[in-house]
């Protein structure tokens, strides 16, 4: 892996040394380059080396956020009693979070958290879907930073709500000492529960989203890099293989759209479940 990374980096350095045009560089290379983790660390646009480093992925996040805000701004400013198709689509998204996630998991108590969970769902959809939009081509959530911020938001939210409702002692007793087991079991159960509540829940929330997007992006890059290699460099009959990898790449694009929506659903659903666990009475 390390060797591969070094090879990719040195190959890029060699390419930039020569004065090739962008098109030439796209359609000529020496052999097949498998995608690597270096995909997710593109060169900086400005502020290189400082904490304000701004690269392609940051730019895509800004574009996705602006697009999300613009769509909802337009929908809200033109809202009518009888919705047209555009407004109908937006209302479908909002109703989806309410009817499919919040109501079944949290019941009527969840109404308070509906704006929070809807924001979470829609922003994750927006940041995920950039992974399949042409010319953006990488999900805003494919670096751990953004999922981490979202997971920490959920983490602070459920801890705060739990402590607010039951008090600090009540919340810890509720979540660390589940009733209905003989007391020696607590030696085993309490550390596991503590690990769950304080570390594993936010960590897995962030990791699940980021890892799904990383895997999806690598899959797409692999398929289309192989297509390019087969079409322009492979000899003779091997060119036909390019059609296969292209079809696979197209299928994975559709699959990635599904995954982007599914991960937003799973993230929001789990956030609702964790909030509900923190709020519910003695179980």
């Amino acid at each position: 892996m390390g060797n591969l990374l070094a090879a990719v980096v040195s190959a890029e350095a060699a390419d930039s040394g020569e004065s090739k045009s962008y098109i030439q560089q796209m359609f000529s290379s020496d052999g097949f380059h498998a995608p690597s983790i270096a995909e997710f660390f593109p060169p900086a646009i400005f502020g290189d080396g400082t904490i304000y480093e701004f690269n392609r992925i940051m730019l895509i996040r800004v574009i996705a956020a602006v697009a999300l805000l613009a769509v909802f701004w337009i929908a809200a400013s033109r809202a009518k009693v009888v919705p047209n198709r555009f407004q109908g689509g937006i209302e479908f998204l909002l109703d989806f979070v309410k009817d499919q996630i919040v109501e079944p998991v949290m019941g009527h108590e969840g109404k308070k958290f509906l704006p929070f969970l809807t924001t979470l769902f829609l922003s994750i959809v927006a940041f995920n879907i950039t992974g399949v939009i042409p010319f953006l081509n990488i999900a805003g959530t494919s670096l751990i930073g953004l999922p981490l911020v979202m997971a920490l938001w959920v983490y602070v939210m459920y801890l705060f709500q739990g402590v607010k409702k039951h008090g600090l002692g009540g919340y810890l007793k509720n979540s660390l000492f589940p009733p209905g087991v003989p007391w020696p079991i607590y030696f085993l159960l309490t550390p596991i529960e503590a690990l769950q509540v304080f570390i594993l829940r936010p960590a897995t929330l962030a990791l699940r989203l980021a890892a799904n997007m990383i895997a999806g992006h690598l899959l797409l890059v692999l398929c289309f890099a192989a297509t390019q290699y087969f079409f322009f460099e492979a000899a003779g009959a091997m060119k036909a293989m390019g059609a296969v990898t292209f079809a696979a790449g197209f299928a994975f694009v559709l699959f990635e759209i599904f995954v982007a929506l599914l991960q937003a659903y799973v993230f929001t659903m789990l956030s609702a479940v964790y909030l509900n666990m923190a709020l519910e009475e003695e179980h």
Partner: peptide, 30 residues
């Protein structure tokens, strides 16, 4: 089926994260 689907997705999320940890450790420990 609505309740089953909800519970299934919670379970799927827990199982799926194991496979994803496998993917990440592949990149971390090389």
């Amino acid at each position: 089926s609505g309740q089953l689907r909800t519970t299934m997705f919670i379970g799927v999320a827990f199982v799926e994260v194991l496979a994803l940890l496998g993917l990440i450790t592949g990149f971390l420990f090389t």
